[in-house]
Simulated assay, not measured.
Amino acid sequence: MSEFAAVVKAPDYPPQLKHKVIFETFDGLDAGQAMLLINDHDPKPLYFQFQATRSELFTWDYVEQGPELFQVKIGKKS
């Protein structure tokens, strides 16, 4: 079984949909599950958006930190 309940490859989506898809995917996770975000740049602004809207609900762990590929494990706390 995969460590991730879902994978979002952000570059596959148009800019206006990226954050919507990421948040919808996260919101669909069960407590204790995690998703993998794959991006072509550091998604730090997204981290701050998670902090502002879901601060007690998520974990954020870099799996890979560039320079060309960024992968972040975003977990939903139990």
Rank of each mutant, 00 (worst) to 15 (best):
L46S: 09
A6C: 06
Q16F: 08
D40Y: 06
L69V: 15
L29N: 09
F4G: 01
L36I: 07
Q33L: 07
T53D: 09
P11R: 05
F26E: 06
E64M: 11
T59G: 14
L36R: 15
E68D: 15
D30P: 00
V72N: 01
S55F: 13
K76S: 00
D42K: 12
Y13F: 15
E68A: 15
W60Y: 15
H41F: 12
E64T: 13
S55M: 09
A5Y: 00
N39C: 08
H41A: 13
K73V: 01
E68I: 05
Y47T: 06
P43M: 08
L36A: 06
Q33H: 10
I22S: 04
R54V: 00
D61K: 14
Q33S: 09
Y47C: 06
P67Q: 12
P11E: 06
V63Q: 15
A6H: 03
F23C: 02
A31D: 12
Y62S: 12
Q49D: 10
P43F: 03
M35F: 07
F23T: 11
P15L: 09
A52V: 02
W60I: 03
D61T: 14
F50H: 07
P11F: 04
Q71E: 15
L36W: 04
L17E: 14
N39P: 11
N39K: 09
D27N: 11
E68T: 13
M35S: 04
H41E: 09
T59H: 09
